[in-house]
Design a protein around this nucleic acid. Structure first.
Lengths: 226, 226
DNA sequence: CTACATTCGGTCCATGCGTACGGAAAAACG
DNA sequence: CGTTTTTCCGTACGCATGGACCGAATGTAG
């Protein structure tokens, strides 16, 4: 019934698809089983998929169009990847990984809580501004990708972000930098605020995102400062 | 080439599809050409489509599933509607119309600018909280629906909202209620802030939206007040 | 040449949107 | 009330696309 329950997967070039791989693409424990060509192809295909999703949207993305964009045949894709789902997950997780890396560096460099909040939002938006296609693809996939049963596939990805920001806000409250408010609720609001600004930039690239950043930082600053 | 350029539309029960109809579903000038049955069917189908989009997402929405949800045959849909596009546009425009009606009432009842801002955000979010499925469907369609050429179909729907809020903010600045800031930029931020909070509610209905409203109102209040 | 990795064209099956057509239901008419 | 005409709706189909897959062809290394 369900396609691919006990498929006799030909001679998989990579291992059979393991959902955990999507979150730990750094195989330090498992030595990199992938050949040079395979790593290059996978990167190329993920890159092409990113562009297609950004241009044509989630619904407009098919293996055929990814292949066309990468100028390869469709079956090269199905040879190197288990299925479409694996590709889309990689688009999202790779983008998150790089963004988080960049952000956490900027945040940890700050000493005050308000500085960390500014660094958080500022570096996040800067990173997105520099990678518009990746951002568009990521948000398209996050918003649309579903499990076979129909529920959103990337539901709980944000809670850890909220947790981290909540901690910063609480520290700022203890140190007297911020006024009194529900830290967790405000953390959610701030993050969603940034998402919102990104949303308007997503549909209209004429709004120069980097120009909006100071305004948003100011806005948040006034909102939480004592 | 393009399908449906000069189709000899069988014996259309309603007139041939006119895009303006989507925005003026109140045919007071044109007497209601639609029969009782037809109006009932159209409402039923739009309602079913709303539920399907909310549950299965934009990509998971097909005429077959809408028909299944409405417990009718697929061709009933294609008989009463020109195509899928017309249905989805109605889902969005009807929701906007009702929401705007509700909001504008609350806003105009306030005299101060800050009161109007609070009324704006508050009534908007309340309305959405009361119509979760419609909201989910609307945002899914807005985010995903594309023209045949691939560009987003609902790009410029927000500018008039921004314009209206900008005017309120500027009045508040003249009256000394608000501090000095770029009114248009902040208007965008505020609206997108609300969208963002709605976004987190969209993926996780356990967050009681109505409980977040006061926090958001406070947040915005502190951010813009002198 | 052999063995294996990679790529291509083409096939298969499911799904999607829209249409054709005939029959039921309702309305119009006698 | 019966008949005709219009409106409405279900079954079946056409045509296109999508994802997955296979066998054959090509490349590559020993």
């Amino acid at each position: 019934m369900s396609a691919g329950d006990a498929r006799s997967r030909k001679r998989a070039p990579g291992a059979a698809y393991d959902p955990r791989m999507a979150e730990r693409p750094d195989p330090n424990d498992h030595p990199p089983r992938r050949s040079f060509i395979e790593r290059a192809r996978r990167a190329q295909i993920v890159e092409a998929a990113t562009q297609v999703v950004a241009e044509l949207g989630y619904a407009g993305t098919s293996l055929a169009r990814i292949a066309e964009k990468a100028e390869i045949s469709k079956s090269v894709i199905t040879y190197h990847f288990e299925n479409k789902d694996e590709i889309l997950r990689l688009v999202v997780s790779q983008f998150f990984e790089r963004g988080w890396e960049r952000m956490s560096g900027h945040v940890e460099a700050e000493s005050t809580a308000s500085g960390q909040v500014r660094a958080w939002i500022g570096s996040q938006l800067e990173f997105y501004a520099e990678h518009r296609a990746e951002f568009l693809a990521m948000s398209q996939i996050m918003a649309n990708h579903r499990t076979p049963e129909g529920s959103p596939a990337f539901a709980g990805e944000l809670t850890e972000e909220v947790d981290a920001l909540t901690e910063i806000l609480q520290r700022g409250q203890r140190d007297g930098e911020f006024r009194d408010f529900d830290a967790r609720g405000v953390a959610t609001i701030i993050l969603r605020c940034a998402d919102g600004v990104l949303g308007s930039w997503a549909v209209d690239d004429s709004t120069r995102l980097v120009d909006q950043i100071p305004a948003l930082l100011d806005f948040v600053d006034h909102a939480i400062r004592r």
